[in-house]
Structure formats: structure tokens, C-alpha cells
């Protein structure tokens, strides 16, 4: 790359390719060190991480008083979807009634997306894979198998794509409402193309609100940042009884267990 303060622009060089190549190297490095979804971990891993940081150590203690353990997810911009998907499917393994409700929602979701103008051909591909995993959960596959699926990039990324499509579809369906929350002069459609559908794009409140609404799954998010003494819980939607809990640290989501 260029030296400090100077830019040696070479017109024959394809910088975009170079950036992408570098991005892939970084992706590979991350992939080598971190599962998409880890085993259940003791909070001592967070205590070690923040050993030098009294503010965060205090917050980890407050987390420990409310939760048993956590699973970490890979920080690749897809962590919210991956954490949500895994935590919820894990829950479904032991809740047949909730599974039946969700299977119905999931199976109908393809037609909703197609009616919104998504191309049937490609939607079908992602939906089929999504349902394949949903049905594995329905057959009460062992937890290890679910864990393996979420760490198999082929499956795991397809699940993330479909959850992203669900969010995009819901935002577009309720565009009148959500357009008030989109920054800049972007339409909801543009927002979805830029911030929801592309892999690796991080999630904000608006994504969480949409995903919990379209799936009917309530989520508690424990916010752990610099302010205050403890982590702050927020339930989506407000006042609901959460099915799963996620830990939020700036830019990243992991899974929490009670």
C-alpha cells in the first residue's frame, strides 16, 4: 500500500481487486481463529479479555449474576443473524409448540417475499436450505448436529442470507413505518440493498425490530458498553417475554444463556 501521506496511484493497477484480496486474507485469518458459533463458554473468557479494564470487569460480573454462560460468534458482520438463528433453533429443539408456530411462519415466508418482488428463482434456493435446517430442528436432531450446521459455511451463510431476506422483506412491506427511521435521503428499498441484503453488513436496531417482528420471536439484548455500572437489558419488542438473549458489545453480538 501507499506510504504515509503519499498516494502513488498506478493507473494500470486494479485497486479494487487489491482491496478485495486483502479483505479475503483478513477473512481467512478470522476464520482460522474463531468458529461461526462456539461451544458454551464460561464467563471467565470475558474476564480474561477485560482483565485490565475495571469498567468492563464490573459489567461482566453483573452479567454473571444474571446468566450462566455464553456462546461467542464470529465477528464477520453477520453475527447478529448467526447468533439469533442459532440461539433460537437451539431453543426450538426443546419446544415443539413453538416449533410448529415457527415452521408455519417460515414456510409461508417465501411467498411473501416473492409477492414483494424478490426473484422466485433465487429466493427458492435460499428458502429450501433454510427449511431443510428448520426440519432438521423439527426432527429434534442432536444439538451437536445443529452446531455443526452453523459452523459449516455453506449452510451457515445460506441461513444468514435468508434471515437477511426476511428482514429486507419486512422493512419493505412496512416501508411507510420504517422509512422514518432510515438515515439520509435513502428509500427503504435502497437501505435494504445497501444495509440489509449484502452479507457482512452489520445490524442496528431497525434490523432487530424487523427480524423479531417478522419471525414473531422476542429477543432480549444485554448492552455492554462504557456507560453505567451494569449491562442494560432491552427487549424487542418492548414488554414482550424474550425467547432468547444476546449480548451486545459495540459492533458485535454473542449468545447468552440463563
Amino acid at each position: 500500500m501507499a506510504e504515509e501521506g503519499t498516494l502513488h496511484y498506478d493507473p494500470d493497477k486494479n485497486y479494487d481487486e487489491e482491496t478485495l484480496a486483502q479483505q479475503r486474507i483478513i477473512e481467512k485469518q478470522i476464520a482460522g481463529t474463531q468458529d461461526f458459533v462456539t461451544e458454551r463458554l464460561d464467563f471467565s473468557v470475558l474476564e480474561q479479555e477485560y482483565a485490565e479494564d475495571p469498567v468492563y470487569i464490573k459489567k461482566v460480573r453483573s452479567l454473571k449474576s444474571k446468566y450462566l454462560c455464553l456462546r461467542k460468534t464470529r465477528g464477520d458482520g453477520n453475527c447478529f443473524y448467526r447468533a439469533f438463528g442459532f440461539a433460537y433453533f437451539e431453543k426450538l429443539l426443546e419446544d415443539q409448540e413453538e416449533f410448529n408456530r415457527f415452521r408455519d411462519v417460515a414456510s409461508k415466508s417465501k411467498d411473501v417475499l416473492v409477492s414483494l418482488g424478490f426473484p422466485q428463482f433465487t429466493i427458492e434456493d435460499f428458502h429450501d436450505t433454510f427449511m431443510e435446517v428448520v426440519d432438521k430442528v423439527g426432527s429434534q436432531c442432536p444439538l451437536e448436529e445443529l452446531h455443526k450446521i452453523f459452523n459449516d459455511q455453506g449452510y451457515s451463510d445460506y441461513l444468514v442470507v435468508y434471515l437477511r431476506l426476511l428482514v429486507s422483506g419486512h422493512l419493505q412491506k412496512e416501508a411507510d413505518f420504517f422509512s422514518n427511521f432510515v438515515e439520509g435521503d435513502r428509500t427503504i428499498k435502497e437501505f435494504c440493498n445497501q444495509e440489509v441484503e449484502p452479507m457482512g453488513k452489520e445490524s442496528d436496531h431497525i434490523h432487530i425490530i424487523a427480524l423479531t417482528a417478522v419471525t414473531g420471536v422476542s429477543v432480549r439484548v444485554e448492552y455492554m458498553d462504557r456507560g453505567g455500572e451494569t449491562t442494560n437489558a432491552h427487549d424487542f419488542p418492548d414488554g414482550s417475554t424474550p425467547k432468547i438473549a444476546l449480548l451486545y458489545r459495540p459492533g458485535h453480538y454473542d449468545i447468552l444463556y440463563t
Partner: peptide, 23 residues
């Protein structure tokens, strides 16, 4: 044909970038 990312030169609108639903 390019993945979304921060626009180095600011000339390409991100909404024209690659999405998994393209064919």
C-alpha cells in the same frame, strides 16, 4: 460484480453492488 464495501473512490453507489440474490 463487486461486493459491497466502503467505496474507495465514492463513485459507485452501494445499491448497485453484488447481492446473493443476483443471477
Amino acid at each position: 460484480l463487486h461486493e459491497p464495501g466502503d467505496d474507495k473512490y465514492g463513485y459507485e453507489k452501494a445499491n448497485e453492488r453484488w447481492l446473493p440474490i443476483h443471477t
